Computed example of a mutant assay.
Amino acid sequence: MHTSISAVAFASAAVLLTACSTTPTTTSMYSQDALPPTVQVPAGHRIAMQTVGAGDITYECRVKKDMAGQFEWVFVGPDAVLSDRSGKAVGKYFGPPATWASNDGSKVTATQLAVAPAGAGNIPFQLVKANPAMGSGAMTGVTYIQRVATKGGVAPASTCSAGNAGSKEVVKYQADYIFWKAA
């Protein structure tokens, strides 16, 4: 009797482990309630896709606009892989111009509407209005894109002066990109 109970317990444990390994991981529903109102998507839209962008932002040391003799790090453009919540690469984010491209060949550019602080050392939250998509696929019908959950990506802390004007530096960053379509 003891052997059969052990066998049943072992078989039950194996079934549970198998079920756990094949059950898709669920992701919590995204809510924009905690975001500043300036970067919230207007009512009448629904989430079409959630991605995590991870990659680089390039900055260049340039003369400050209308301030001869003063220099600053200026944003040049991003280069990031977009992955779904399970970690599968589904596209790229690059620029200029800022372009989100799906692996299915569709892509979209957008115009910035608003930014909001995202904490020290992090690029700001952002809301952009999408232009009509190029190609057919995941980006078709996208109306807004939010950049949230940002980590890193701010301009370099290194000196930017006449001595290194024109030099470029690359910094790592990560952010969630939430794609919205009309409901």
Rank of each mutant, 00 (worst) to 15 (best):
A80L: 12
T26V: 05
P132H: 03
Q70C: 01
A130D: 06
A7I: 12
W180G: 01
K65L: 13
A48M: 02
A175E: 00
M49A: 10
G152L: 06
G69Q: 01
D33R: 12
E60Y: 03
P78N: 02
I57P: 01
D56W: 05
T38V: 11
Y30S: 05
S4C: 08
F75V: 09
P96Q: 06
V8S: 11
V74I: 14
T51K: 07
T143S: 11
I178Y: 13
T23W: 05
A175I: 00
Y30H: 08
P132E: 12
M1A: 04
L16D: 06
T38N: 08
M67L: 14
G77H: 04
G163S: 09
A11V: 05
K107H: 10
N164L: 08
A14K: 14
H45R: 09
K172S: 05
S83I: 00
A183W: 07
N164A: 13
A13G: 09
A7E: 07
A114K: 08
A118V: 02
A110H: 09
I47M: 07
K92S: 12
I123H: 10
Y93A: 12
A138Q: 09
P24A: 05
S31T: 14
M49Y: 09
S86A: 13
T150S: 14
Q40C: 07
T51M: 01
F179L: 15
G153P: 10
P156Y: 12
V128L: 05
I47G: 08
P42W: 13
E60G: 11
P117Y: 04
K151A: 14
A34H: 15
G152P: 08
P24E: 12
A19G: 10
T22V: 13
S161F: 01
V15A: 15
A120C: 01
S28F: 14
A89D: 05
G55K: 08
H2E: 15
D104Q: 13
T18H: 11
Q174S: 15
T18P: 01
F75H: 07
S106M: 06
T25R: 02
A43D: 10
N122I: 01
V90F: 04
E60I: 14
V142Q: 08
M1Y: 09
R147S: 13
F125I: 00
T159F: 00
V90N: 03
V154Y: 03
C20G: 13
G91P: 11
P96E: 03
A138D: 07
V154S: 06
V171S: 03
Q40H: 02
G95T: 13
A48W: 02
E60V: 15
R85E: 00
G166I: 14
P36V: 00
R85M: 00
S31I: 02
A118Y: 03
R46A: 09
